[in-house]
């Protein structure tokens, strides 16, 4: 198999910080640490080319540099791309991560890099590329290269990749299923006894830390603003025209209510699969309060009700997906001058 290796100006043997501005160049065969990689990869793989780019050049022209380097890599039709390792060098780490990510997503070729856990490139790219954990300095070269070469060969051959601790890569923040050696019930009792004895134990799901948004200033004159209604309770027109899923929704619906004074059992229903639908189907206003919103509009308490409402199903729908729906909806609402939103959930 053919391998292309990416290095910065220092490891690419062009020069130190004074050469950090150089544009990407191609060298044939392995260079610098590439010689070690070639030895570790053995006869199965051949490093046919090395691409070298200055760290400053890359950092200052990320998009342009990525395009150029990607084109150079494409010329060699590699089966595998290696980058770095970058140890704790921030700009170099970003470059290695960005190139690997582009290779994986756009060329569909496996790519791998190595970094120290605190390299800023880790946070940016660990979800998209495998980053092998290295030491902070070049003293960790041999060990890092060994782990990178081993994992790279596995990836290139399409072999199953084990957990981070076993394979030596930094956790990617992705939850993956596997079959444990004992049942959940047995693991639970064992974990509890360890916890009670004060022995070390490993939780299988560390609690996440949620980010927060600073509250916006209040709406000043409600009687003049346009207000929109959104629900995660799955209220959709009867028959569910967009086929919003009962759970793990992959879409949301936008529905015209400009001619409606209230929702009825004949006009709307819920697509939500997570709660007893009887009451919502009987009177959908119990989830999306169109009837009273219209009353408040008539009474002049709300300036105007936005002529559409948005609906999705919150049941088992991932936080990330729901956030994406919300960002798309917000863009439309802002464009249409909406200044206040009520979201209802079941």
């Amino acid at each position: 198999m053919k391998v292309v290796h990416y290095l910065n100006q220092f490891f690419g043997q062009i020069g130190a910080e004074d050469k950090a501005g150089i544009e990407p160049v191609v060298k044939t065969g392995p260079v610098g640490p590439g010689v070690l990689f070639q030895e570790l990869l053995g006869s199965e793989a051949e490093i046919t080319a090395t691409i070298v780019c200055g760290d400053n050049y890359f950092a200052e022209h990320i998009d342009k540099a990525t395009e150029k380097i990607l084109a150079m890599i494409t010329d060699y039709h590699p089966d595998l791309v290696l980058a770095g390792p970058a140890f704790n060098a921030g700009r170099y780490g970003i470059a290695c991560g960005a190139i690997c990510a582009a290779v994986v997503s756009r060329l569909g070729v496996p790519a791998i890099t190595g970094m120290f856990a605190e390299n800023p490139g880790v946070e940016s790219f660990r979800k998209t590329v495998y980053i092998v954990a290295t030491r902070g300095t070049t003293a960790g070269m041999r060990d890092g290269a060994l782990k990178m070469a081993r994992l790279a060969l596995k990836l290139a051959k399409g072999q199953p990749i084990g957990p981070p601790g076993e394979e030596g890569y930094l956790p990617r923040g992705l939850r993956k299923n596997y079959f444990a050696p004992e049942t959940g019930a047995s693991r639970a009792v064992t974990m509890l006894l360890k916890k009670l004895k004060g022995e070390p134990f490993l939780t299988e799901y560390p609690m996440p830390v949620f980010d927060r948004v600073v509250p916006l200033p209040p709406v000043e004159r409600m009687s003049e603003v346009t207000l929109a209604l959104i629900t995660s309770g799955g209220i959709v027109p009867k028959g569910n025209p967009d086929r919003v899923e009962a759970s793990s929704a992959t879409k949301y619906g936008k529905y015209d209510i400009s001619a409606l004074q209230r929702l009825t059992a004949e006009s709307h229903e819920t697509a939500h699969g997570g709660y007893d639908p009887t009451y919502a189907n009987e009177d959908p206003n119990r989830v999306l309060p169109l009837d009273v919103a219209r009353d408040l509009e008539r009474e002049g308490i709300i300036g105007r009700l936005y002529p559409y409402y948005y609906a999705t199903v919150g049941n088992g729908t991932s936080v990330a997906r729901a956030g994406q729906f919300a960002r798309e909806i917000a863009t439309e609402l802002i464009a249409d001058g909406v200044r206040a939103v009520i979201i209802t959930s079941t």
Binding site: F210, D211, R212, V213, P215, L216, P217, P218, V219, I230, S232, V319, A322, G323, F325, A326, R327, I329, A330, T331, L333, I334, V338, R339, A340, V341, I342, I343, T344, S345, T346
Partner: peptide, 27 residues
């Protein structure tokens, strides 16, 4: 969702039954 719409710049209120969940997700 409330958090993301608020982040985008529109004041948002979340009417929901299970308040702790709403707190957790950041309304």
């Amino acid at each position: 969702m409330a958090k993301e719409i608020e982040r985008a710049g529109i004041p948002t209120v979340h009417i929901c039954t299970i308040v702790p969940i709403s707190r957790t997700v950041g309304a």
